[in-house]
């Protein structure tokens, strides 16, 4: 997994690329740390270029969602395609993570 953080005013966008699986645990936590240290108001996780997400990956999104709710910013997961979209649909997490 690779990621890029784009910031414009209070709006942040994290663009992911590759697979988000159990082994991405560490870099994902790094993203959350960076988000916690910035003054983010809304954040978009862009999954357009993500090919695969496993249940541990979904769990990381839930952790991000929890952090957003606690710190008072909004998280929106967008752009999921193919396998990722069907995983989000199967687990109905698309509703929970869509803002």
């Amino acid at each position: 997994m690779e990621y890029r953080i784009e910031t414009e005013d209070d709006n942040t966008k994290v663009v992911f690329k590759g697979d988000i699986t159990f082994s991405e645990n560490v870099s994902f936590r790094q993203i959350l740390k960076e988000l916690a240290e910035s003054s983010v108001k809304t954040c978009i996780f862009d999954l357009t270029d993500v090919g695969m997400v496993d249940s541990a990956g979904l769990g990381m999104f839930l952790i991000a969602k929890e952090q957003a709710d606690t710190a008072g910013w909004k998280l929106n997961v967008t752009g999921a395609q193919g396998h990722v979209a069907s995983m989000l649909k199967l687990t109905k997490l698309s509703e929970l993570l869509a803002g």
Binding site: L58, L62, L90, T91, L93, L96
Partner: peptide, 10 residues
């Protein structure tokens, strides 16, 4: 159709 929120989230 086995879709549904996984157990132990909300």
């Amino acid at each position: 159709d086995s879709s549904g929120l996984p157990v132990a989230i909300v």
